[in-house]
Simulated assay, not measured.
Amino acid sequence: MKSIVLFLVGLFIGAFATVAGISALRQGTPYNDAVMSVLGQQMGAFKGMGESGKCDMPDVLRRLTLMQAVAGEVDAAFLPVGDDAKFSQLSRDLGDALSKASATVAGQLAASTASCETLAQVMPDVGGTCKGCHDVFR
Rank of each mutant, 00 (worst) to 15 (best):
M1C: 11
V9I: 14
V9P: 06
G10Y: 04
F12N: 12
G14A: 12
F16V: 11
F16M: 08
A17P: 05
V19W: 11
A20W: 07
A24C: 01
A24W: 14
Q27A: 15
G28H: 04
T29Y: 08
P30Y: 01
S37D: 14
L39R: 06
G40E: 07
M43Y: 09
M43F: 04
M43T: 11
G48H: 07
M49V: 00
G50T: 02
E51D: 13
C55H: 03
M57N: 14
L64H: 02
T65V: 09
L66I: 13
A69N: 15
V70N: 04
A71R: 03
G72I: 00
D75A: 14
A77Q: 03
A77M: 05
F78Y: 14
F78M: 07
P80V: 00
V81E: 07
D83K: 05
D84E: 13
D84F: 10
A85M: 10
F87D: 04
Q89D: 15
S91A: 12
R92E: 15
A97W: 03
S99L: 10
K100F: 03
A101W: 00
A103E: 12
T104W: 01
T104F: 00
V105S: 05
G107E: 11
Q108K: 15
L109Y: 11
A114M: 01
C116P: 07
T118K: 02
A120F: 05
A120Q: 13
M123Q: 09
D125P: 02
D125R: 02
V126M: 02
G127R: 01
G128I: 02
G128T: 08
C133V: 07
H134P: 13
D135N: 10
F137H: 06
R138M: 05
